[in-house]
Computed example of a mutant assay.
Amino acid sequence: MALSDADVQKQIKHMMAFIEQEANEKAEEIDAKAEEEFNIEKGRLVQMQRVKIMEFYEKKEKQVEQQKKIQNSNLLNQARMKVLQAREDHIKQSILEDCRQRLGEVTKNPVKYRKVMEGLMVQSLCQLLEPAVTLRCRQVDVKLVKDLTPQVITTYKGLTKKDCKITVDEQNFLGSDVSGGIEFLSPNNRIKVTNTLESRLEMMSTQMMPEIRTTLFGSNPNRKFMD
């Protein structure tokens, strides 16, 4: 039995509706899958960026912490240096200055000062080991060094088996800032040995500085070597 045109059109419409429904369902399925994949990819990218951001700020935090430690260490070292400098200044300005002021008292004891001068002269000759030297001293000590010269030369000969001529410079004297002692010069003034009371104090203070620090401020807990 042949279908009428109306029946054909009805079946065609029915088939088109079915196809359209299938297409819509397929499109929805594709959209849903695409949305799911999009959300997954978006989540992955967000998580990846979150990890990068966290790593970045963790790195920054570590850098800040390291800088803080360095800064604290520098500040601590600066504070220690200031303390050490203050101690050094106290030793030099207070104790050593007091010692310098007392140097003049050595010359007030003729017997003691004579013995000191003799030792300084002999030591200076042994340092120079020259056949002839020029001696400079304070103007008030000229007579003393002239009186000591023969005995000093005898002692020097006994120690070194060498002879020496000492010429006292009576034109150039040690400055007013010198409390006592002598200065020896080799021929042509090429070598100078300074053995004043001030130079001896300076040398002794340098050698005894660790002991002085320990006596005044106690031992340094950070010091590893005592020599």
Score class of each variant (00 low, 15 high):
Ser4Asp: 15
Lys115Pro: 00
Gln71Phe: 15
Ile212His: 02
Ile30Asp: 13
Gln67Tyr: 07
Leu135Met: 05
His14Phe: 10
Arg213Val: 05
Gln49Thr: 11
Asn24Cys: 00
Ser186Met: 02
Phe173Thr: 01
Gln47Arg: 06
Glu65Thr: 03
Asp89Val: 07
Asp169Asn: 13
Leu135Pro: 05
Glu105Phe: 12
Lys157Gly: 01
Ser176Tyr: 13
Lys108Ile: 01
Arg80Met: 06
Gly175Arg: 01
Val142Asp: 08
Gln63Tyr: 05
Gln139Arg: 13
Gln85Lys: 11
Met15Asn: 15
Asp31Ile: 12
Ile95Cys: 01
Ser94Val: 08
Val51Met: 12
Gln139Ala: 09
Gln127Trp: 05
Glu130Asn: 05
Pro131Asn: 11
Asn220Ala: 03
Glu183Met: 10
Thr214Ala: 12
Met48Lys: 15
Thr134Lys: 09
Thr196Tyr: 05
Thr149Ala: 15
Met204Trp: 08
Asp98Ser: 13
Asn24His: 08
Gln127Glu: 14
Val111Leu: 07
Gly181Asn: 05
Arg100Lys: 09
Gln21Gly: 07
Gly43Lys: 14
Phe56Lys: 14
Phe184Val: 02
Thr167Pro: 00
Lys82Ser: 06
Ile40Met: 11
Leu148Ile: 06
Tyr57Ile: 10
Gln78Val: 01
Lys59Arg: 13
Ala79Glu: 15
Pro210Gly: 05
Ile95Thr: 03
Asn195Glu: 10
Gln78Arg: 11
Glu118Arg: 05
Asn172Asp: 14
Val152Gln: 02
Lys146Ser: 04
Lys82Thr: 05
Gly175Pro: 03
Phe173Asp: 02
